[in-house]
Amino acid sequence: MNRRKFVQHTSLTAGSLLIMHNLFAKNKEKVYGYNNMLYTLDTRWSQADASKYPVNDCHEMVQDKQGRIILLTNETKNNILIYDTKGKLLDVWGHEFPGGHGLTLHNENGTEYLYITDTVKHQVYKATMDGKILLTIDAPLDANGIYKKREEFVPTETIIDSNGDIFIADGYGAQYVLQYDQQGKLKNYFGGRGDGDEHLDNAHGICFDTRIDNNMLLVTDRTRNCFKRFTKDGKLLEVIKLPGACVCRPVIQGDHLYAAVLRSPDMNKEGSGFVTILDKNNKVISNIGGSEPTYIDGVLQPMSQTDKIFVHPHDVCVDRDHNLYVAQWASGKVYPYKLKRV
């Protein structure tokens, strides 16, 4: 073999070995999930410097129209951290939300706004994307006497209707879903504590179920391990049972519903969280870090954590490429993890 052919042969062999090595390395990366909803885990996605931009509880995340990932934490050194999808920190703001909990993005005639709930200050805020407060909603002490004092109002989540109406889930308070107009005037409420299916216990999250009908609300009933579908005026339509899963807010993208499972319901099972994914028919099709969904005679069997990749996952953000970002509560002040869709 002459020198030229030898060099070509050696280059091809080295290139083939490199490709094989890369494929082998990729294949070694652990994959989580079931039924083609599969993900690899990146626990070091965030490139934020913890000494400069610390987090406490990472509560919720959204993606804006620019593609940025926005995180809410109850760390008042920087309540809002803004990233690109690769984990680079782009901006921070906010010192006013010691109980920053719920983060909702709403596009109003082409302009995006953030809605923030604060469980310590017992308030809900509408803010510009750079943090200017435009509206504050206080405890609804005029709501026919159902609230006697401001401390009974502990809002955890909001969703905004196309007409500007604001639905607030009082998930750590009196367990009502309250409907306000866009000026912050109370219009209606439903739910509240009680033993009936129409009542709520830890109404942690709320969204419009765009998979089926924009006029339907999905509300979390975390203590009872389920989501409940209501009409906008509060008529109960369906209970979606999720045994073994204390679910946080429902997140819709396309035909799928995603939710962080804070823990399994046994109070001794702290640190037992995972992420669950449902299809359009509300059938669980995948769990990330959790057991394979199993149905017997159409009934979902209790789910549980199988991989110790999360402690207390609190929210899931789904980006345009169907990757997931998971924020965690009481988990050692860790930054969000990224789950890349396989």
Score class of each variant (00 low, 15 high):
M1F: 10
R4Y: 03
V7C: 06
Q8E: 09
T13Y: 06
L18G: 02
M20H: 02
N22Y: 03
F24L: 08
K26S: 07
Y34R: 02
M37I: 02
M37W: 00
L41T: 02
R44V: 14
S51L: 11
P54T: 14
V55A: 06
C58G: 15
M61N: 02
D64R: 11
K65H: 09
G67K: 12
R68K: 14
L71T: 09
L72D: 08
N78C: 07
Y83R: 08
T85E: 14
K86L: 13
K88V: 04
E96N: 14
E96F: 02
F97D: 07
P98E: 11
G99A: 13
G100N: 08
L103T: 15
T104R: 03
L105A: 04
T111P: 01
L114V: 04
T119K: 14
H122Q: 04
D138N: 15
A139D: 01
A143S: 04
Y147G: 02
V154Y: 04
I159C: 13
I159A: 12
D161H: 07
D161Y: 05
S162L: 05
G164M: 15
D165E: 15
F167S: 10
Y176H: 14
Y176P: 11
V177I: 15
V177A: 08
Q179S: 07
G184S: 05
K185G: 00
Y189M: 03
G192E: 10
D195C: 01
L200H: 00
N202M: 08
I206F: 02
F208W: 06
N214A: 11
M216A: 04
D233W: 05
P243S: 12
P250R: 05
G254D: 05
Y258I: 04
Y258W: 09
L262S: 05
P265V: 09
M267I: 13
N268T: 06
E270V: 09
F274H: 02
D279V: 06
K280E: 14
K283N: 07
V284G: 00
N287W: 01
G289T: 10
P293T: 11
L300D: 10
Q301N: 10
T306Y: 00
D307R: 05
K308A: 00
H314S: 14
D319R: 10
D321C: 05
K333F: 07
Y337F: 13
V342Y: 06
